[in-house]
Nucleic acid binder design. Sequence first.
DNA 1: CTGTTAGCGCATTCAG
DNA 2: CTGAATGCGCTAACAG
Lengths: 335, 335
Amino acid sequence: MASQQDVAARAHVSFMTVSRVVNNHPNVKKETRERVLAAIRELAYYPDASARALNTRKTENIGVIFPRKEYVFSRPFFIELCIELEDSLSRRGYHLFLGSTRTGDEYRDPTRLVKERKVDGLILIAPAVSDPEIERLAEANVPFVIVHGSSDAADCAYVDTDNAAGTAVILRYLFELGHRRIGFVCGNMSEINARVRYESYGSELKVMGIPFESDLVCTGDWSIESGYEAFRTLVRREPRPTAIVFSNDQMALGAIRAAYESKVRIPEDISITGYDDIKYAAFTVPALTTMRQPLDEVASAAAELILDRIAGGEGARGVVLSPELKVRSSCRRIG
Amino acid sequence: MASQQDVAARAHVSFMTVSRVVNNHPNVKKETRERVLAAIRELAYYPDASARALNTRKTENIGVIFPRKEYVFSRPFFIELCIELEDSLSRRGYHLFLGSTRTGDEYRDPTRLVKERKVDGLILIAPAVSDPEIERLAEANVPFVIVHGSSDAADCAYVDTDNAAGTAVILRYLFELGHRRIGFVCGNMSEINARVRYESYGSELKVMGIPFESDLVCTGDWSIESGYEAFRTLVRREPRPTAIVFSNDQMALGAIRAAYESKVRIPEDISITGYDDIKYAAFTVPALTTMRQPLDEVASAAAELILDRIAGGEGARGVVLSPELKVRSSCRRIG
DNA sequence: CTGTTAGCGCATTCAG
DNA sequence: CTGAATGCGCTAACAG
């Protein structure tokens, strides 16, 4: 493995000049630069990231932190987001660390990742609202941004879509289709998004003049299984709801299965909606009406925010993007 | 940010002793150790990963390389695998770098990740058979292991499940159900797994005494869309196949949608099978009969292999695990 | 435009 | 059991 010294010797310059060439400093004579470049190529020289990081105190790595592992399986949406993040960040020369939290496991402590200088900053995906981790990060002055969530500890950078508006759009869509008895299935209520969607359900009901009935609400955990169970519960209510709003697509997927088993037809007997517009939503039978979240925009906004934070910037605190209703075939007009 | 020096001063020892404590060296008097530990806690000292890596030439990072980005969306299976890998490796104190390849992009060159010493080794997920990258890695003497695939350049470490056997099991299952006219949908043929499954289809047909008909074979690319198209093509063949074997679950998902649209019933009119047993396979309508791949075992085998390779070991070259048939409701007995 | 002198924070010798 | 010297490969600040 060649070092700057080796390159310097071969090019008959000091290693400082090599460093300048590598870092694209302007002050290098053109022909010297070319001589160095040639030596670099001949020796297959690659700068050592650790040595550089030791000096600059920048690793050019970003940590992406997921909720706990089991959770990830229920939420392909977040994985898709993660891939987009990798794409955005890699374009700017950054690499991604993947981490999921495992409570009580020191090795998974995200703060540690920063303190040990393995990463320059953190992107937290859908953390729990009251996650103590977040406050610790803020106190430790660690650059971080939250994607799909926010914290009680007020002022942290975040990127999200407008969940309240999105949920309201769905409800109004159902309302216009003639639905007046609308069930709701929450996600994991430790997450802000789950809460916001639920609250929006309540307030939009009020706007539409529909009384709230706690019997029409179930709490899931975003998983297919929980959607399956929730559907079975809600479909037995008397009188039966004419529509059910699921807080994400996965749960709606479970509902489709449950409906089939109990010989309830969607949308003939009951309408359902999802949220997220995962890749598969367009292929279910019936195809799922859902809210599309602009993954790529969320990712590139998050990328910009974290980079700004790392650079010490105090730019935008939060970015809120708009979801978009995708009407497919899981709802029908009634009454 | 406290350094070893600061800790040393506070504990009234040399920084060398601090280093020993941090690295759990045996030769430290118990009470000295405790004094140092106390100082570490009081100063919130964390060892600097870059500095350590510079010395030891070990980063304790592993790079996980995906096929190109768009691809990942079609294959949730690999994501699930990635999560398991993170789990396995993090238990051993390693962190994961996430990378997907983007051809021609220097910043995404996996080799570079190693040469710059950002990672100690690489795990390649389902690379193309003739990926020139692999040969370069081998030549550069980079520790790496391939998961779900292998290379023409013979001797590299790999972990996979027995795809030939798995496919044979499916075919035989269908045969015993009475099927004699069985279609096949390939995955992306640049991958070894796609090829092996296809070849196994051919040879198993022969074993069962069924003539091969190229009309009954379609080539997809693992995606839902390609499965959708393949189904539409195969279902029009005369006489129509009584069963279609899909090389992965995603494509079978597309088929379910296509069947619905063309009013062909599964399994009454035609039987289908998938491969992988993704989380969702149990919830489709009808639930999908498929081959389960033991993700967690694959992941921990890969973790062990790469760690062995990094340590300079020459242990097992390859690990082949057994898939398992999951019979659900997408096939029926005929004839 | 180029080279020299310092250290980044730590671990690896080798002495005591 | 502990400490002192040395260098990992690189960049920053200053000279020339």
